[in-house]
């Protein structure tokens, strides 16, 4: 059975906005993995933007990948919906402020996570930080919410642990990792193999919304030496 990466809207948006959406096709061949999305991601990355002139071209590019089976849409099943509801319930009862639960995730986030669980996916590609951090580091997410809302925020560690347990074998990646992998494997014909090109690639991903800081990009690039693998 082929391994699976479940892809969130945010990672597809970054890839299409940086004009490197075709990386999915190259990675699929190189890894022999399937890239799968729930129906909600197809709606957000193709159907809805097709109606918005500003984003129509990007939507057409993404649609092309679905039409050619590079990206696949998983059918909504009763089991998937049930898992999705349970994940959403758990996620939205992890944090509370003044006795009230903070609803940090939405149905579409839960569908991505549920699909990864149901398909036994190896990876989830997600560029926005909340869905990623609530699994990887809920304490740090609590600190962000508390620090920015200036309100006392409680983390229910038991709920967070139960949520995390669902994804203990799943690796969360961003488009930054996908692009860096593709770059270091020399999958880009259109740009030279240089530190400057890699820097431009990562900054473009960041400016298109990938959850990565300039500091992290700088730290990564500091280890780069021309003609060597990163």
């Amino acid at each position: 059975m082929q391994n699976i990466v479940v892809v969130d809207s945010s990672a597809i948006i970054t890839m299409s906005s940086t004009c490197f959406i075709n990386v999915f096709e190259k990675l699929k061949k190189d890894w022999n993995y399937r890239f799968v999305v729930p129906e909600s991601v197809y709606y957000e990355t193709v159907e809805r933007p097709l109606e918005i002139p500003r984003f129509e071209l990007n939507a057409v590019r993404v649609k092309h990948l679905f039409d050619n089976n590079v990206l696949e849409v998983a059918k909504k099943t009763t089991k998937l919906q049930k898992t999705s509801s349970e994940i959403l319930r758990l996620a939205n009862s992890c944090f509370s402020s003044h006795g009230k639960f903070l609803k940090v995730l939405q149905k579409a986030d839960a569908e991505v996570l549920a699909l990864a669980k149901e398909l036994n996916a190896k990876m989830v590609a997600v560029d926005e930080r909340t869905a990623r951090m609530i699994i990887e580091n809920p304490e740090a997410l609590r600190n962000i919410i508390e620090g920015r809302t200036h309100s006392s925020v409680e983390l229910d560690k038991e709920q967070a642990y139960m949520l995390k347990e669902n994804f203990k074998d799943i690796f969360f990646i961003r488009s930054a990792e996908l692009l860096s992998y593709a770059f270091s494997s020399r999958m880009f014909d259109e740009i030279e193999f240089s530190k400057k090109a890699l820097e431009a690639l990562l900054i473009s991903a960041k400016l298109n919304g990938c959850g990565i800081s300039f500091g992290e990009i700088d730290e990564f690039l500091s280890g780069w030496k021309n003609e060597t693998k990163i």
Binding site: S180, L202, I212, S213, F214
Partner: peptide, 18 residues
Amino acid sequence: HEEEPTTESLREKLEKLR
């Protein structure tokens, strides 16, 4: 995203991915 902590750096994630 500038002031947010990272659980694993890009370098660590890339190595794991490879």
